[in-house]
Design a protein around this nucleic acid. Structure first.
Lengths: 343, 343
DNA sequence: AACTATAGGTTAATCGCTTAACTTATTTGC
DNA sequence: GCAAATAAGTTAAGCGATTAACCTATAGTT
């Protein structure tokens, strides 16, 4: 049964203060060693465990970080998000912080975060996630709400925000560095495989795409964009259909390793070879790219680093509230065996 | 800034009781509609957010479930654990529960759980994870500690425990159903790829292995067991080395899809074909198996179902403390294109 | 007119832990 | 021998929200 400090104090005949003082600092000189022993015995016998809610309330410090996620689809399913979380957790755990994930039931990203925030005052800080589905308006709204809490927070996974907000900016979230790599290798006719048609991230990427094409004086061709929905089946089908009609491309640039893998399967199924006939590059350096045959070149985005940085920046804020900076995480191309120079 | 009920009450000229009553039940008749409006305005202006620690302490109910993990290696990195967590979270979120992950710094699984439990009284329930590294002794110790808290809990990912403990038993955690599938297909000379040499789970599997061989009157051959460490490189290397010497096997049974994928790569590298020369089966039905060329048959373990069941069972216990049962999750073979009948 | 409901509150104790401030007895220093 | 230091406590006021129990005024009933 859950016992309290009071019960221990009564049993050993002292005040709760002494018990609390001792249990929070075993080296304290304010409790005699005889008393220390008695408290230890009583605590064990009574199965004492500190109530985190009482302690946090009393100290006005909880050592708990709230993770705000603007969606109510099941968590821990997305490899990308998991990497971020892994980075965050590994760094915060070292500093003694717990992570709290709230439920939410709303349908919009704005309301989800609001709902999560509504009942979570008392956390020492927050990390605000975003997804490609959050509109810039919702993101800014959520940031405003967070500012109002007066608590430290860091935003993750969103494009740069001009506000003075602590922010981790994953540069390659909206870059097309892998496309440029293919272009630099001499490819011009490239099939671009994006994630979904909606969502802000893809809009940024499309804008970037047009910019790069213009720079290189390559005409924009709408047919050379496919939306794979981050799904194996969708991508395989759409790429197969594409190749059935257009055989003139020399490379495929996919916005995820999964979609790159699926594209690879589709290319092989048509009898073409990689990288002989078609070069392929993925994104995220997940195991899919390493396990493919041939192993796929990819854009390593350093997601876990981003998570760790977010945690570090949050911690910095907790210890020094004046902290205000943006940390940029930039990735790098991992060269494997799926891209040839185009002569 | 974080405001309190008291500040709202003062601003609108009422008691904290009224404010609390209204905010917890907007339809209450104990607050006039004029007062309701005033409270709404004040709450908005003062950016009121309920303090989860104060509220939980007061109600002796937190709507928080503690997730106990007997290791301090970074979380969210393991696909298997992530599936469990995803199942848990999806079910508990629907019921309004938050998930709390504690930090821990100890070196043994026993101490890790103890440390996490030590400061977490007040949660409404716990889910105890295990890993293949936990010894049965540590597991039982942790269960005893949990029983002492008097709080509902469920154990996950461990072999069946005779104690009267609520438990989700993932049958294929310690089964060799995929091996039997190969045997049934006529294969006899099979290379078994296990995870690590240490850890209880593998011991269970080894025992099972010997049992199955004895039943089928197949001699045990120590050389036909490889430990791939769940690592692509290790597995690839070890399987390559194996094949350089022994070409007489007709099938490979791997305890993870990743290791199955790596084996596939190794087999292909030696010039042999799958499933022509060698059949391969994996475990866990992860995307690796689906994306391989050829797609790998695998043992789907229904991990997410297990997570969901754990959540449901925990919830049942919270609402009815007398609950005591074990739920068995059994998987099924997913047939793809990596296994041939052996004639 | 007397009685009961009901609306619309308020009071104050409580959840379990922490901590500043106070107390008292015993040592230690010089 | 006396002041100062130290050891070993205790007291009591919070932290912020909840809730059982109580209160008063008005409306409705018979």
């Amino acid at each position: 049964m859950g016992s309290s400090l009071k019960e221990i104090a009564e049993r050993v005949g002292t005040s709760t203060a002494s018990v609390s003082i001792y249990l929070n600092n075993r080296d304290t000189k304010r409790v005699s060693s005889a008393m220390k022993k008695k408290i230890d015995v009583a605590a064990k016998e009574l199965n004492y465990r500190k109530n985190i809610f009482a302690s946090s309330l009393s100290k006005s410090e909880s050592k708990v970080i709230g993770i705000l996620i603007p969606s109510n689809i099941p968590l821990f399913k997305n490899g990308y998000t998991n990497s971020l979380l892994s980075g965050i957790q590994s760094s915060l755990a070292l500093k003694g912080y717990s992570l709290l994930f709230f439920p939410s039931s709303a349908s919009s990203s704005k309301e989800n975060v609001q709902e999560q925030l509504q009942n979570s005052a008392g956390c020492d800080g927050y990390i605000l996630f975003s997804t490609g589905f959050c509109t810039m308006e919702h993101i800014l709204w959520n940031i405003r709400e967070l500012e109002n809490t007066g608590k430290p927070f860091v935003t993750l996974n969103i494009p740069r925000v001009s506000k003075e907000v602590n922010q981790i900016i994953i540069e390659d979230l909206t870059s097309l560095r892998s496309l440029e790599y293919l272009l630099d290798a001499g490819h011009e006719k490239i099939l671009l495989i994006l994630g979904r048609t909606n969502g802000e991230h893809m809009q940024f990427i499309l804008t970037e795409y047009r910019k790069i094409l213009k720079q290189r004086k390559i005409p924009f061709d709408n047919r050379r964009i496919i939306y794979g929905n981050y799904s194996h089946k969708d991508t395989f089908l759409k790429v197969s259909n594409f190749l059935a009609v257009h055989r003139d491309i020399s490379a495929i640039c996919a916005m995820s390793d999964l979609m790159a893998s699926s594209s690879l399967a589709a290319v092989k199924a048509t009898g073409l070879t990689v990288p002989g006939d078609i070069s392929i590059i993925g994104r995220n350096n997940s195991l899919y790219s390493e396990l493919s045959d041939p192993p796929l070149s990819t854009l390593e985005m350093k997601i876990e680093d981003a998570g760790r940085s977010a945690a570090d920046l949050l911690f910095e804020q907790i210890t020094n509230p004046a902290t205000c900076r943006k940390i940029f995480i930039s990735g790098e191309i991992i060269e494997r065996q799926s891209v040839n120079e185009k002569s």
